[in-house]
């Protein structure tokens, strides 16, 4: 029950605060686990709009933990027909200390491929508590 309340709170917070108007959820990937006995949640999402793609990264915990964030985050527009990347941006990592959540997002104009484009959000999250440090990998993509 505690986990369900936690998830609902996460979803409501993200939807209410950050997603620009007119953008529909396209793709989302989640990972659930524990660090030092505390439940944690890692999530990445990709949304598409007419001219932009919007991607966000969320790390959450059911109580305050020592470190919460990500160790690296790559966002990229990939061209499957040509096996090339039209856009690639790797964020080197960031975190909060003694917090219950971390959130970041990017809104990027489409570069465009010769053919379909695939919009990737991938990388390792970062959680530390009770002498344990974990880096779960989560990735997701959507294409147009």
């Amino acid at each position: 029950m505690k986990k369900i309340v936690f998830l609902i709170a996460v979803a409501v917070t993200i939807i209410a605060i950050v997603i620009p108007a007119g953008i529909a959820l396209a793709s989302q990937s989640d990972w659930y686990g524990t660090v030092g006995g505390v439940s944690v949640h890692a999530q990445k999402s990709v949304y598409l709009n007419q001219y932009q793609w919007y991607t966000d990264l969320y790390s959450g915990a059911t109580q305050t933990i020592n470190i919460i964030g990500y160790s690296y985050w790559t966002v990229g527009e990939y061209c499957p027909a040509t096996y090339t990347w039209a856009y690639w941006n790797q964020y080197s990592g960031d975190y909060h200390t003694y917090a219950t959540s971390y959130y970041t997002a990017a809104n990027i104009n489409y570069r465009g491929c010769s053919g379909i484009s695939r919009y990737w959000s991938l990388g390792n999250h970062d959680f530390a508590y009770g002498g344990q440090h974990i880096y779960p990998y989560v990735s997701t993509y959507e294409q147009r």
Partner: peptide, 19 residues
């Protein structure tokens, strides 16, 4: 640029793509 690829090369703002 349009980002730096893992080999350190930038995806340029001016580019010619031959496919």
């Amino acid at each position: 640029n349009n980002g730096i690829l893992p080999n350190g090369v930038a995806i340029p703002n001016e580019q010619i793509n031959d496919t």
